[in-house]
Amino acid sequence: MIAARTINFTLNGAPVTADVKPHHNVVELLQAQFGLTGARETCGQGLCGCCTVIVNGLAVSGCLYLASFIDGAEVVTVESLDAGGKLSPVQEAFIETSAFQCGFCTPGFVLMVTQLLDEHPDPSDDQIKHYLTGNLCRCATYPEVMQAVKLAAKKRKGA
């Protein structure tokens, strides 16, 4: 059997340690060892975005990212966005525009939209569509997500 190795990384701001095997991916690690289920494996191919996590400031597909590779990294998950019990502007906007149905893809969308607005505080429709190409919603809430992004952009400017 292949031995586990110990990795150290920062998870939502706190230093943590985990034992991982080479074939474990980040989604499994977060779910099994940290009880964080906001990142989920759906398509398993980096196409749907349900597994989105932020590694060293960049969005990645947790289902295609070996857990070993986050040794020493800063990892941020959707669970950090409402720190202190306050929803982020993006989360508020998703609720106010009803930009979700079943909610399974929603954490991934919320994280990607947060990244999008960090990069483009006032995005055009085209920028939104291109940035979110890799986030699919089988309930097809795309028009509502478009509205949520615009509302969130406004909220962030006001904040």
């Binding site: 960049l58 969005a59 295609l64 990244q115 291109h130 890799g134």
Partner: peptide, 12 residues
């Protein structure tokens, strides 16, 4: 790059 796969794949 704009239409190459998606942001997360391009990041990695």
């Amino acid at each position: 790059m704009i239409t190459l796969s998606n942001v997360r794949v391009r990041n990695v």
